[in-house]
Design a protein around this nucleic acid. Structure first.
Length: 504
RNA sequence: GGCGUCGUGGCCAAAGUGGAGUAAGGCACCGGGCUUUCAACUCGGAGAGUGGGGGUUCGAAUCCCCCCGACGUCACCA
């Protein structure tokens, strides 16, 4: 059998994957969330399955208003559209954990009935005290199991009397737990290292440990991709799944992102510094900073996913090539220069019409009224000069301004003085004024001829003209730009430049 | 501190179950070309012997042991 046929058969045997991104609405949507969502999306699309958004809002104290909206906007901006979620529903809803309270309570009861969990009446104060004592004795802080052996009838009475309680998971005390991670293999933990964690809080809401496990099962999630910060509680989660007698999903613990230096995670300080440099780790900022979803996605995809070659990919190409086997478990330092690279590359891949449409809001933000026909003409001129979309301002704002105000010194050509430069500007004006129109085919030859006869170099002549017409030293190609600006405006701007030079 | 994960040039990374050849490729960097500026494009260059040390083997980035470092985690947070 040829390997090709084998591959086909293999593909046919793949079951559609159901994946989920399960952020908690506690702050700004982070780059790391976006990357996990991307991988989730890629796997779901590749296998013909579903990608789901689930909001993990069981910590009422930390939930921040608007965070959920930010996540949904972020996902949509990136183009990572989910098939099921809080705002669009789906067959396994609700998709917001605070709306699933009864489900968790029922499941906590199942665990208690099966002897895998127990009510705990310890107060936070007692817990603190015990923890402190343990630390004083140089022991590892852990729950001492005071309520683990409570008589069930007594416990029932105390609950009935209204005493506050939590439900704790009863971890095995002996032996080891072997949990299997798809990227890291078997992870073995001695059970005595494990703790009886709270799975249902006094407020009746579950902790992550219960909620995520129950939901992943109820929602038929096949692959759980999450950050490696969950590795510590991985054995707990596996034990909970097994206590229910459920089949485990495929677990994939992804690497974390490190700050650019590679030393530690991004802190508030680094995030602020990045913002100063025109970068961000928050998705909501990306668009403002001029990044494209294509660029951000391609960039983040490659931090933790090893593709051998052709690393510039659209999402569809990523879907084709994606495999959880080629994910890497090691932490990756964020490299914003590479973001620039991918962003610029994807900008160049956009059609003229598409790019024009994306640029418009940035001009508008600057208060510039853009005309669509003009915009369509300048896009080919500035396209390969853009790293971020908002660069269109520095390269193209002068097209839409009534007047430009060159820095006087910039009007003086290299090696010449103001007087000489003014003389050149006057000649340039004459030459251009003599042309019936200012198309670049029309204006360039006589200008070249002038450079030739004047014994000046092209940089000097064109430099003066460039600064006069565009108001800046760096610009898109001169003659093409002048053509778009138009004869009258160009002449007026040159005239103005002559005036400036003569006053120097 | 306990436990866990990770460790290939500055950064991201490739090298099916140890084996062809100078350990791919990309970003960044340096130099040439093109050129009206800046880019883009193009050609070329430098940079690691795979955290360190021991093994096993004819042969190790791939297997074993020890050490080191970084990161994560030890909540009624996720």
């Amino acid at each position: 059998m040829s390997s090709k046929i084998q591959q086909e058969l293999f593909l046919l045997s793949i079951k559609p994957a159901r994946t989920r991104i399960a952020p908690s609405p506690t702050g700004h949507m982070h780059l790391g969330t976006a990357r996990v969502a991307l991988y989730d999306y890629l796997l779901a699309k590749k296998t013909g399955g579903q990608f789901i958004l689930r909001i993990e809002d069981t910590d009422l104290k930390r939930t921040v208003p608007g965070a959920e909206q930010e996540i949904m906007h972020g996902l949509r901006w990136l183009g990572l559209n989910y098939d099921e979620g809080p705002d669009i529903g789906g067959p396994y809803g609700p998709y917001r954990q605070t709306e699933r309270r009864e489900i968790y309570q029922a499941h906590a009861k199942i665990l208690v009935d099966k002897g895998h969990a127990y009510p705990c009446f310890c107060t936070p104060e007692r817990l603190d005290r015990v923890r402190k004592e343990q630390m004083d004795r140089k022991e590892n802080p852990h729950y001492d199991g005071a309520c683990r052996t409570l008589d069930p009838d007594d416990a029932a009475k105390r609950i009935a009397s209204g005493e506050p309680y939590t439900i704790r998971f009863k971890m095995p005390r002996e032996g080891v737990t072997i949990a299997h991670d798809h990227l890291r293999g078997d992870i073995t933990t001695e059970n005595k290292q494990l703790n009886d964690q709270v799975i249902l809080k006094t407020d009746g809401l579950p902790t992550y440990h219960l909620a995520a496990i129950v939901d992943d099962h109820e929602m038929q999630i096949t692959h759980v991709m999450r950050g490696s910060e969950w590795l510590g509680t991985f054995p707990l989660h596996v034990n909970i799944v097994r206590a229910f007698g459920w089949e485990e999903p495929i677990w994939v613990h992804l690497s974390v992102f490190l700050k650019p230096s590679g030393k530690g995670k991004m802190s508030k300080r680094e995030a602020a510094q990045a913002m100063k440099d025109g970068y961000s780790i928050f998705i909501k900022d990306m668009q403002d900073l001029g990044f494209t979803p294509e660029g951000v996605l391609n960039w983040s995809a490659l931090m933790g996913w090893g593709v051998a070659e052709d690393d510039v990919m659209t999402v569809n190409q990523m879907v084709e090539r994606f495999s959880i086997d080629s994910l890497t478990p090691s932490p990756a330092a964020i490299n914003f220069q590479k973001l620039d690279h991918f962003n610029a590359t994807h900008i160049r891949l956009l059609t003229t019409e598409d790019l024009a449409a994306r640029l418009k809001p940035y001009f508008a933000r600057e208060g510039l009224a853009v005309k669509d026909d003009v915009l369509l003409k300048i896009v080919p001129l500035i396209r390969e000069r853009l790293t971020t979309l908002d660069d269109c301002i520095s390269f193209g704002a002068f097209f839409f301004k009534d007047e430009v105000a060159p820095v006087p010194d910039d009007l003086i050509a290299k090696g010449l003085d103001a007087k000489q430069s003014a003389e050149i500007a006057r000649r340039v004006y004459q030459i251009l004024a003599a042309q019936p129109d200012i198309s670049h085919e029309r204006s360039e030859p006589p200008m070249r001829a002038y450079v030739e006869e004047s014994k000046l170099n092209a940089n000097q002549v064109f430099g003066i003209l460039r600064v006069a017409v565009t108001g800046q030293k760096v610009s898109p190609p001169l003659f093409e730009s002048m053509e778009i600006i138009g004869r009258d405006v160009c002449l007026k701007r040159i005239q103005n430049a002559i005036g400036v030079l003569e006053k120097m």
